[in-house]
Simulated assay, not measured.
Amino acid sequence: MVKELIELGKSILIAIVAAFLIITFVFETVSVDGLSMYPTLHNKDRLIVEKVSYYFRKPTPGEIVVIKYPADPREKFIKRVIAVEGDKVKVEDNKVYVNNKPLDENYIFEQRMQDFNEVTVPENTIFVMGDNRNNSLDSRDPRVGFVNYNMVVGRAALRIYPFDRAGRLNAALQNR
């Protein structure tokens, strides 16, 4: 009986360690809280965040990423990568420009947005924005600013809830 309890304890311990390693290094689930990514993502959508690919490559424009909020790293934000290191970004006349080329953004909620002076994305950082541009705390705000790679949790890969909208989340194609 004691031997069986020890074996059961070992099995439980192995399961806990495996779950910890998977959640830490492979994937996790997150819930969308708010409307900053509307209409692409809705409040209370459940997503699977894939973490492995960013061990081998950097985030690319158009991808939807989960980041740690710089002002409170315990909080996570879901945003779209607009520009990467070395890119110049600005918002002018309701259009986002990257390297002086307007982005084709058929995924955004409103076409009207406040102008944002041109900035150059520093090394090892990304510039992110929500798809609901007028209701998004993103890189245009100094509380978020440029997002360092070490603050990127992973790539939002799948929507798992609600079930009628479940499926892959594809990176939007942009004119670059």
Rank of each mutant, 00 (worst) to 15 (best):
V121G: 12
I126L: 11
I160R: 02
N106Q: 08
N148Y: 05
K58S: 15
I23P: 00
S36Y: 07
S53C: 09
I23E: 13
I12M: 09
Q114G: 05
V30S: 09
V98L: 09
Q174P: 04
D45S: 11
N170H: 06
P39H: 09
Y69S: 06
L13H: 04
R57V: 04
S11H: 02
P73Q: 11
V153D: 10
R143W: 03
K44R: 14
G62L: 04
L169M: 09
F56V: 11
V65T: 09
F27D: 00
V26E: 13
N43H: 15
R74C: 03
K79R: 08
T24K: 09
N100T: 04
T29C: 05
N100E: 15
V98M: 10
R80C: 07
N43A: 05
F109C: 05
M129L: 14
P61H: 03
E28A: 10
G34I: 09
R176L: 13
N132Y: 12
V98T: 10
V17T: 11
K44V: 01
K44Q: 14
S53W: 02
A71P: 07
E63A: 05
E7F: 06
N132V: 03
G145F: 03
Y161K: 01
V2E: 08
D164Q: 13
I16N: 00
K88H: 08
V66M: 07
I64W: 01
G86Q: 05
T40Q: 06
V121T: 07
F77Q: 02
F127W: 10
R143T: 14
G130E: 07
I14R: 00
T60A: 14
R46Q: 14
R133M: 05
V84T: 15
Y149M: 15
A157W: 11
A157M: 12
K58L: 07
S139H: 03
N117E: 15
L41V: 05
R57H: 13
R176A: 11
I82E: 08
I78Y: 02
E28M: 12
V147L: 05
E28R: 06
V98K: 03
